[in-house]
């Protein structure tokens, strides 16, 4: 008899490859990922060096043109893409991991543990983010992309925690959890080996959403001047171009690439999430 696991896997890929939303989202993300990985090898310029004349439109020599300071936009763009992926992975990853921990514990233990963790979750949700960021900005005068990612991760977990908690809560009442408890297994092990595997698709979708959310949050921070003080990011490119009136001066090549990449990347993440939902949830599958 054919083991159903492999059958289920085939079924997953069958539906995944036929889901346009998922496929388009994956293609967009993959395209930018390749760009972010190999892009920096295609340019001989440095991030902030004066690479050529000011305000040059795209040409064979300066693929994406130059800025008001004569920096190469293509160089900034590919490093900015790298930063976006770092923020997505680290910020989104951290939010997913912290959210999972809190959600698993609250949902599994219930009672007092749940109430305390709920309080924590609600507190983090209601803390005025901007105030915290201003304080951080005041103290951390030198900030990199990683710092930013960690801050974003530490404030976006509550959403993931709530989602994981409610799923855990419903799985917990199933008899197989009782069977595991009747071996004297530790609650950590039960959560990890019995509950989490049932939520793989869900956890993965949570991560995809958090990834998109983190990239967007970073862009916002950069744009209002709370971003990294070192290096470059798509949001910083946008901020600089706006500060130097790129729109009014018609230097579109300065802000269109980062803006379009942000919109497409975040959009692709949300599209993938919807697509994954349809693939994992047979009731939503398109015919």
């Amino acid at each position: 008899m054919e083991p159903p696991q492999s059958k289920e896997k085939n079924e997953f890929f069958y539906f995944a490859l036929r889901n346009n939303k998922l496929v388009i989202g994956l293609i967009v993300v993959f395209f930018f990922l390749v760009f972010a990985i190999i892009g920096p090898f295609l340019t001989e310029h440095d991030l902030n060096e004066r690479a050529g004349p000011r305000n040059q439109p795209p040409s064979a020599e300066y693929w994406f043109g130059t800025t008001t300071f004569g920096q190469d936009v293509f160089t900034q763009f590919v490093y900015g893409l790298r930063a976006a992926f770092i923020v997505g992975l680290v910020g989104g990853g951290l939010a997913t991991i912290v959210g999972m921990m809190v959600g698993f514990f609250a949902g599994y233990h219930g009672g007092m543990v749940d109430e305390l963790l709920n309080m924590l979750t609600n507190t983090v949700i209601t803390i005025p983010k901007l105030a915290v960021l201003l304080v951080i900005a005041a103290y951390l005068t030198v900030r990199g992309v990683i710092h930013e990612s960690i801050v974003i991760g530490l404030w976006s977990w509550p959403w993931a925690a709530r989602a994981v908690r409610s799923q855990t809560f419903s799985l917990k009442s199933r008899n197989f959890i009782d069977m595991a408890r009747m071996t004297g297994m530790s609650s950590m092990k039960i959560i990890w080996t019995e509950i989490a595997p049932n939520m793989m698709s869900y956890l993965f979708m949570t991560f995809v959403l958090q990834f998109g959310g983190a990239v967007l949050a970073a862009a916002t921070l950069d744009f209002i001047g709370l971003g990294p003080t070192e290096g470059i990011s798509l949001g910083l490119m946008m901020q600089h171009s706006f500060n130097w009136s790129a729109i009014q001066l018609g230097i579109w090549w300065w802000f269109v690439p980062p803006g379009a990449a942000l919109a497409l990347l975040v959009g692709a993440m949300y599209l993938m999430n919807v697509g994954l939902d349809e693939v994992f949830n047979p009731k939503l599958r398109e015919r």
Binding site: N175, F176, G184, N198
Partner: peptide, 23 residues
């Protein structure tokens, strides 16, 4: 508690939900 479960066990009404469906 582990020693207790070595001696005392239960079986319940609904057989399917006693198994983790993905294993």
């Amino acid at each position: 508690l582990k020693d207790y479960y070595r001696q005392v066990q239960g079986v319940f009404q609904e057989p399917f939900s006693a198994y983790n469906p993905i294993f």
